[in-house]
C-alpha cells in the first residue's frame, strides 16, 4: 500500500473499507473492496465492463449506500446526499448540457447550487463568477464559445465544457466516469492533455473510471485494476512517469510495457486461471500507431 502510516498525520481523502454493494439482493456488484486515495492523487480505475467501477464512483459520490462496510470521504462517512465534508465535481461520458442555456451558463450551474457560491450567485453571475467560468473555458481551449448554445458545439467541445462545469466550484474531489469514452481517438488524446493541465494546475483528488488502458497510464499517478464481477481490486500500482506526459512519451517502451502489463492483468481477471486468452495474445493492438 502506498499510504505512509506516519502517525496518521493525514487521513486519506477517500476511504472505502470492506465495502460490499448488492443490487436488488442478488447482484453482488462489489465484494469486500477496500480502497484508499490520498489527497491530490490521480487514481484511475480500470477493469472489464460491468465489474463495478461506476458503482465505486457512485459510492464515493454518495449516490449509493454500501450494503456493508463504510465509505468515508474527507474524514466523514458519506451519508445523505449533499452532506459531504468535501466539495465534489462529476463528469460522465454524456456531457448533459442544458440546451436552453449558453455554454457559459451551463458551466456556472454549480455556482448556482453549491454553498457558499450560491448566496452570491445573483450578485456575481455577471462579474466574478462569469470571469471564473470564462477563464476555465479558455484553459480548455473554448475561449469565445461561452455564448454559444450546446448544439452548436462538437462532442469534444461539449466534453471540455463538461469538465469546466465539474471544476468551476473548485471541488476537492473530481469524479470522472469514462468522460472521454464517446470521443474519437484524436479528440480523446487532445482532452487527455487538457485534463492533465487542469490537474497539474489545481491538484484536485481525481478518481477516473476508464476502460482505456492508455488513458489510465497517460493520466493517472496510480492505477487500480479490478476483477470482473463481483468486483475486487486485484492490482494496484503507481505510475511514475514524469509530468507533463506527452503523446511521444506514450510511445516510449516503459509506457507500452505498462499498458501491456495492465492488459494482461485484465485478461486474467476476465478468465481466471488461463492466461492464454485471445485478449492477451494481441496486446499490441492498443499501443501500435
Amino acid at each position: 500500500m502506498s499510504d505512509t502510516p506516519s502517525a496518521s498525520a493525514q487521513r486519506p481523502m477517500i476511504e472505502l473499507s470492506d465495502v460490499t454493494v448488492r443490487y436488488g439482493g442478488n447482484v453482488v456488484a462489489l465484494d469486500n473492496t477496500t480502497l484508499r486515495i490520498d489527497k491530490g492523487d490521480f487514481v484511475a480505475l480500470v477493469g472489464p465492463s460491468g465489474c463495478g467501477k461506476s458503482t465505486i464512483l457512485k459510492l464515493v459520490a454518495g449516490l449509493l449506500e454500501p450494503t456493508a462496510g463504510a465509505a468515508i470521504v474527507g474524514g466523514r462517512e458519506v451519508g445523505a446526499i449533499g452532506s459531504h465534508a468535501k466539495r465534489l465535481g462529476l463528469a460522465f461520458q454524456n456531457p448533459t448540457m442544458l440546451p436552453w442555456l449558453s455554454i457559459l451558463d451551463n458551466v456556472m450551474i454549480p455556482l448556482k447550487i453549491v454553498e457558499p457560491f450560491r448566496q452570491d450567485y445573483r450578485r456575481k453571475r455577471k462579474g466574478e463568477f462569469r470571469e471564473r467560468a470564462e477563464a476555465l473555458l479558455e484553459q480548455v481551449g473554448l475561449a469565445g464559445f461561452g455564448n454559444k448554445r450546446p448544439w452548436q458545439l462538437s462532442g469534444g467541445m461539449l466534453q471540455r465544457a463538461s469538465l469546466c462545469r465539474a471544476l468551476v466550484h473548485e471541488p476537492d474531489i473530481l469524479l470522472l466516469d469514462e468522460p472521454f469514452g464517446a470521443l474519437d481517438q484524436f479528440t480523446r488524446e487532445e482532452l487527455w492533455d487538457t485534463m492533465q493541465d487542469l490537474w497539474i494546475n489545481r491538484r484536485p483528488t481525481v478518481l477516473l473510471v476508464t476502460h482505456d488502458l492508455r488513458e489510465s497510464a497517460y493520466l493517472a499517478s496510480r492505477i487500480c485494476v479490478m476483477s470482473s464481477r463481483p468486483g475486487r481490486i486485484i492490482e494496484d500500482q503507481r505510475v511514475t512517469f514524469a509530468r507533463p506526459r506527452t503523446l511521444e512519451s506514450s510511445y516510449q517502451p516503459d509506457f507500452t510495457t505498462l499498458v501491456q502489463q495492465l492488459r494482461m492483468s485484465i485478461a486474467e481477471a476476465r478468465a481466471p486461471g488461463s492466461s492464454q486468452t485471445p485478449a492477451a495474445s494481441r496486446p499490441l493492438e492498443e499501443v501500435s500507431v
Binding site: G82, H84, L90, F92, T96, L98, K112, I113, V114
Partner: peptide, 23 residues
C-alpha cells in the same frame, strides 16, 4: 429528465427544488 444530469446536481448538494427549478 436525464438521470446523469440529476446525479451531477445531487452531488453538488442540489435539493429536489433546485433540480425542479433549474432542470
Amino acid at each position: 429528465t436525464e438521470p446523469e444530469l440529476e446525479d451531477v446536481l445531487r452531488v453538488l448538494g442540489a435539493k429536489k427544488r433546485d433540480i425542479l427549478w433549474n432542470v
